[in-house]
Amino acid sequence: MFIHLGGDVMVSSKEVIAIFDLKMKEAADSTQEFLKVAEEEGFVVVVDENESKSFVVTNRKVYFSPISSLTLKKRAGFLEDLDER
């Protein structure tokens, strides 16, 4: 299954490690450091230059998406998996 992150960007749900609200970017020093290193190493992809609401960590890249983390989680089926447990 693929998850549409906005624009013309889609990723395989198997590659997704985590989906975060953009507010998490400021929450912890370790998160800020991770994103800084990812950007320095060229692993960051900004889907929409105008607005980002979430970021998605995959095993290859970090995507900043204009779509909310809740919507992306629904698209990925993460919430359904949690409800079944």
Score class of each variant (00 low, 15 high):
M1K: 08
M1Y: 01
M1G: 14
M1A: 08
F2G: 00
H4D: 08
H4G: 02
H4Y: 13
H4R: 07
L5H: 08
G7C: 03
G7D: 04
D8I: 05
D8P: 00
V9F: 12
M10A: 13
M10T: 14
M10I: 15
V11C: 00
V11A: 03
V11N: 01
S12T: 11
S12Y: 07
S13Q: 12
S13F: 00
K14V: 04
K14P: 00
K14C: 03
K14H: 12
E15N: 13
E15T: 09
E15D: 15
V16L: 11
V16I: 15
I17Q: 11
I17P: 01
I17M: 11
A18T: 12
A18Y: 11
I19E: 07
F20A: 04
D21R: 08
D21K: 06
K23S: 15
M24V: 12
M24W: 12
K25G: 02
K25T: 09
E26K: 14
E26L: 11
E26A: 11
A27Q: 15
A27V: 10
A27G: 00
A28C: 02
A28N: 01
A28M: 07
D29H: 09
D29P: 04
S30I: 15
S30L: 12
S30H: 13
S30F: 15
T31I: 15
T31R: 10
Q32F: 04
Q32T: 10
Q32R: 15
Q32N: 14
F34A: 03
F34W: 04
F34R: 07
L35N: 05
K36L: 10
V37Q: 13
V37C: 01
V37G: 00
E39W: 03
E39N: 15
E40T: 12
E40R: 14
E40V: 06
E41M: 09
E41A: 09
G42L: 06
V44A: 05
V45A: 06
V46C: 03
V46D: 05
V46E: 12
V47Q: 03
V47M: 05
D48Y: 08
N50P: 00
N50S: 11
N50R: 13
N50D: 14
E51N: 09
S52A: 14
S52H: 08
K53Y: 08
K53Q: 15
S54Y: 07
S54V: 05
S54M: 05
F55M: 01
V56T: 09
V56F: 07
V56R: 02
V57F: 07
T58G: 04
T58C: 06
T58W: 09
N59C: 01
N59W: 01
K61T: 06
K61I: 02
V62K: 06
Y63E: 02
Y63V: 02
Y63L: 03
F64L: 06
F64H: 01
S65R: 05
I67V: 15
I67R: 07
S68F: 08
S69I: 05
T71K: 11
T71M: 10
K73N: 10
K74L: 08
K74R: 14
A76Y: 11
A76S: 13
G77E: 04
F78A: 08
L79Y: 15
E80W: 04
D81K: 14
D81S: 13
D81Q: 12
L82D: 10
L82A: 13
D83P: 00
D83H: 08
E84D: 14
E84P: 00
R85D: 13
R85K: 14
